[in-house]
Amino acid sequence: MIHEKAVVTENRRLAEGVFSTVFRTEAARISKAGQFVMVGTGSDSRLLKRPISISGADPLSGELRLVYRTVGYGTTELSLSKEGDAFDILGPAGNGFPVEKASGKKNILLVAGGIGAPPLLYLLRELKKTGAGGDCITAVLGYRGEKYGLFLKDEFEKEAKVIISSDDGSVGVQGTVMDAIREKVTEADLIFACGPLGMLKAVKGYASEKGIPAYISLEEKMACGVGACLGCVVKTAAEDPHSHVNNARICTEGPVFEASEVMI
């Protein structure tokens, strides 16, 4: 894991409250899709780092991209950053998506609710690189509505078949990503998902009903990001081999779990 001051090389707004910030950092050289970085604030009174999923990394240029929604002080500060600003970065952290599970699969489904899309874009590009899934990757992206901005949609469309859902029905299927899946998706043999807890519960239910393996990325408030504080646990179906209780650390054993392993 890298701990360093990372310099912003680009920052732009993608949609209402959604920003894309690129850093130059050594973390880009070792990161995997589904991992995250802990980003420090510049404030003396906001001392915890913010866990933000990685939406892309170029090991050659050392550039690492974060796409996030502004929800509080840390993300707002990041959204106001300019080229040359430096942020304390710790990462990459977490296990990442198991890209190897895609080998031999014919119909891979990526399910993203709102700001769950960024890590799946990184995953999509990694899957394309390995050749796994080939041309049979479908991405289902859920948005609030067209007027709030369809962030990352264009980038997904370059690499996968995209199905959209929107809360207000202004674009794609009206409703949730699950409504879009039930209406438009006929086959899937592997699911990767990231989004709000309610959506992940629905994906878990769908995967279980259809007998499809599903890997879901969870989030939780974190303090250390390295597995020491035990702040970010999720209940597990079986005893966790590290904790020896039915709790796994989202920052370390996760954030990606096989859906049936976690009691969400």
Partner: peptide, 27 residues
């Protein structure tokens, strides 16, 4: 082994944080 408390277990506060991990440990 102790399971500890429910999540969320932590919150940031001005120049500090609160925690209620509940002493989760493997025994």
């Amino acid at each position: 082994p102790w399971e500890g408390n429910q999540t969320p277990r932590i919150a940031e506060t001005p120049s500090g944080m609160m925690n209620a991990i509940g002493l989760q440990n493997p025994g």
